[in-house]
Simulated scan of single mutants.
Amino acid sequence: MADGTYVEQEFVRDTNYIADRILADPDPSKAPGGDAPVGAQEWPVEPGRYRLAVARACPWANRAIIVRRLLGLEDVISMGVAGPTHDADSWTFDKDPDGVDPVLGIPRLKDAYEARWPGYPRGITVPAMVDVPTGAVVTNDFPSITEDLSTQWRPYHREGAPDLWPAEHLEEMAEVNRRVYTEVNNGVYRCGFAGTQQAYDEAYDRLFTALDWLEERLADRRYLVGDHLTEADVRLFTTLARFDAAYHGHFKCNRSKLTEMPVLWAYARDLWTTPGFGDTTDVVDIKRHYYEVHRDINPTGVVPQGPELMGWLEPHGREALGGSPFGDGTPPGPPPEGERVPVAHNPTLGEDGMVRTR
């Protein structure tokens, strides 16, 4: 969802999320049900207690899907997948039988928000962590969700899981993440929802200035920070994976396609073919979401058939830059059968749900 307001016709994202945290060592004075207000409560890490509600169409949710898979938390935190479209009211679980999430027993994600905060006044967003015993949303603060998966759930990571928040690179990663978020992740939305020509022109210039910076930064290094994958790469990937399919045309980010930015295109292909990235990407859901939901931008709701996806499997040559995706660790195995993206939605996948090799 593109929840936000306009300031002088510039789109400004609403970032006032439910900021509760799920922590390995929560403060008892901030326990749920105590005196701490919603947004400041701390919940305990507890395998099997929480369900991650996502939609594969959403880049912010896709970020959480990738991190959960890279860390091997599938058996520790279950995942409910909403459909790609929604109305002004809520994301819905229309992919499930009878349109009801089989664990939470609800048809709309809004029901989990209302269970926690009756009359919840803000947008119903994904990703969201839901407390299964009560059916109430815990948090929808997407930056904290993925950071906590990496840092608070470490005892439950799979053997060989990557360190996506390496201590020696935290300061540099924070700077990179800040620029990628403001100028790229959110920058495409600032272009797409600009209310005037001036607002659009300024957003467009900011976006491509940042993409040019990334082209230069990644020309001689395989990953954004350090020698292996970090969350910085996850955060950039989800925007790049949607760029040609949605942002270039739908959001008018059309100076260049991703395929016309040689360094970023090779970098994106490198990530796509890394387990956890391309195999979590549902291009049909992505296109349906943007083109069907945003009727103010695309009044007809017509969804484009392209772009062709097999180019994502072309050799990228990024290995020559050194480094390796998992450092001293190992890649995750095939995704659980019930969580695999349909091959019809991503033809780069094989029957095991993994990206094919040429």
Rank of each mutant, 00 (worst) to 15 (best):
V76I: 15
I77T: 10
I77R: 09
A82W: 12
G83C: 14
T85P: 12
H86D: 12
H86F: 10
H86Y: 10
H86L: 11
S90E: 04
W91G: 03
F93C: 05
F93D: 06
D96L: 13
D96I: 00
P97C: 06
G99R: 03
G99W: 07
G99L: 10
G99V: 03
G99P: 07
V100I: 15
P102I: 05
V103K: 14
V103N: 08
G105W: 01
I106P: 03
P107M: 00
P107R: 10
R108V: 03
R108I: 04
L109R: 08
K110Y: 04
D111K: 10
E114W: 01
E114I: 03
E114R: 08
A115N: 15
A115T: 09
W117Y: 13
P118A: 04
G119I: 03
Y120M: 01
R122Q: 13
R122D: 04
R122E: 06
G123P: 02
I124C: 10
T125R: 06
P127K: 04
P127S: 11
M129W: 11
V130R: 12
D131F: 04
V132H: 12
P133R: 13
T134Y: 11
A136C: 12
T139L: 05
F142G: 11
F142W: 15
P143S: 07
P143R: 06
P143F: 01
P143A: 06
T146C: 14
E147S: 14
L149I: 03
S150W: 08
T151W: 14
T151D: 15
T151P: 13
Q152K: 04
R154W: 05
